[in-house]
Amino acid sequence: METNILVAGFGGQGVMTIGKFLASAACDATDKYITFFPSYGAEQRGGTANCYVVISDEEIGSPMTDEMDDMIVMNGASLNKFLPMLRTGGRLFVNSSIVKEEIGRSDITVVKAPVTDMALELGNSKVLNIIMMGVYLGYTEVLPVDVVWSTIEHKLGKKPALLPLNRMAFEQGLQIGRAERA
């Protein structure tokens, strides 16, 4: 069993953080093979950013294949660029606050969540990625939720004041993911 995940958006949306947290949690909680591979241009904030995470029971070949099982897309440009790489039967997680385009594929599962709007309602635009992680995990259960949360807790350890907000963001995402799955 091998799961290839792509997370894509623009710089500043916490795209790399989603990938790193998933890979980190998988490293902490399982004996599986894991790779995280970041890909970005010379740009920083505002430029495109994407990363690849592979979680596998066997040795991993390429950390950046062009045939994805799961895809998390945070902006429209990324959807257009990467959607052809999602395999038939793959799962697409979309930030529907920003991505207004028609998905236009009936051979995949689409889970939409307005994570930018939700983050603004929570009072901090930066937590959109934590909400999206919740959506993804709530739907896929690719990793145990409590393990991922303790990874987030650990990574945010230096800023404990932000933990309640992130917990709320994570929970809201989980609810959406679980509801979509049901």
């Binding site: 790193k20 490293c27 093979y33 894991i34 790779t35 591979f37 950390p63």
Partner: peptide
């Protein structure tokens, strides 16, 4: 650039 920039356990 792959082995250098990727993360693995």
């Amino acid at each position: 650039g792959v082995v250098g920039t990727m993360m693995e356990p």
